[in-house]
Design a protein around this nucleic acid. Sequence first.
DNA 1: AAAAAAG
Length: 589
Amino acid sequence: MGTSWADAVENSPTGPPGNAGIAALKSAYVPPHLRNRPPASSVAAPPSGNDGFANARPTGGSQWPASRPDYGRRGYGGGGRGSGGWGGRDREVNPFGKDDAAAADTEPAFNEQENTGINFDAYEDIAVETSGQNIPPPVTTFAEIDLGDALNLNIKRCKYVKPTPVQRYTIPISLAGRDLMACAQTGSGKTAAFCFPIISGIMRGHIANRPQGTRTVFPLALILSPTRELSVQIHEEARKFSYQTGVRVVVTYGGAPMHQQLRELERGVDILVATPGRLVDLLERAKVSLKMIRYLALDEADRMLDMGFEPQIRKIVEEADMPRPGERQTMLFSATFPKEIQSFHSNRSQVGRVGSSTGLIVQRVEFVREADKRSHLMDLLHAQRDSGIQGKQALTLVFVETKKGADALEHWLCLNEFPATTIHGDRTQQEREFALRSFKSGRTPILVATDVAARGLDIPHVSHVINFDLPNDIDDYVHRIGRTGRAGKSGLATAFFNEKNMSMAKGLGELMKEANQEVPEWLTRFAGRPSYGGAKGRHGGGRFGGRDFRRDSSSNRGGSGHDYYGGGGGGGYGNYGGGMGPGVSSAWD
DNA sequence: AAAAAAG
């Protein structure tokens, strides 16, 4: 498999040694039965001197004071900074709405965690490993990192009391100007993890003047995500973090009229959140230039580096005017990373993993013949309706394989008086967004979805994920069930398994076993069949010919393993040495 | 083989 395009994303072939070193963290979710084991930490990668932006000069008299004494004044953002920032006449809408009344000073701290939606206690015991040379140490409080007054106030407004593990480890790394690759779910505070350093860096960094007198805009940071809804979600969060910092965040995505997005862009943009297709369009129309990009963040990075996105990502990262690696900071985030992506990083990489919330999900798998799926689904829905689970705030997400299948199932559910809606790529963007809102609000507490909803979407109160059709890739399964058990809450995931899913038997069984779930005997039996067992992982059934590295490393337990040492990306994976021995071979260990 | 992402 050609890796050069991904190398362009992540590596610096020409830069000085280590200049584009991917600093990251490695961590492992530790289920309750294995906790209280000391977290491993290894430092093995070659030096990474990518401090290109870490040592951004103090701003001196620039318009970007590290802290803004005027943050209390609404609608003021200090205009006149090229294409970025809020124009003086613009009034910045308060993204916190009425909640902001409680914003700062008087809010008592003791119950704030309640409101974050993140069950911090569930994260307390997560072991985190980092690997790489001279990794900045993790922090335990936001106070330890100087993000600036305005950003700190927004953190307070968000009612974040202390950083989540992914934030504790990645923020210092990012602030030090290092590239990183981190494995974590959105509900674990991932968006903040890459937004805080970007916002902080833009505020205090020295910003060269952006070209004037052109309608082209020059964002300083680019955040890419694989679906429109995810981009919208990231934008909403990023707006909160950047409120009254003077840093302007704009989102662009397809399926919506372009002129409105263009108007937003022309009002100034510092951080651009985008889906690849629309961004390519904007680049070709010269509406956007990437010349000034200092930060590139890929959310759901494994999907972004997937074959289907390759041409677009290549255009954006290689063929447009984006600064090369080493001249920009690159951050990759995903809940799963196939080993091929890791090998792209070669021996400069440091790969991380932060507690996936999968351990908080009860996983069940049931053998359901294709023809029985609907009635079985009906049984489940009836049961949870009767037991009151399907209240207003308990949502059920049903994944199916095809768009057509989604429509059909939604129709059937509605006929049977189950309030359902559907989201998939054949619906208009308006319909998609309406469906998502209707689901979130509980108006239609059943959402039938294709994989468009599998990744990254943070929907509170999804109590049940049903894999009506199982995916063909264990990573997709991990992403899908990650829609429940968000932010440290518990959730239920039910999968319908039948003879069409034999290729998943081994992977699913292993995954469930390692997550300390009850594995049906029949599934183990299927997994043991030589014709099915492990064919996928070993011979490349996945998109990358492999699976999430956690899974790979666990399948390497017995033997020849470690193909990542010699593997494709031109380099070792030696940094695994101390941190990822057999004893720590899996996320679920 | 399917889904997503431009119109």
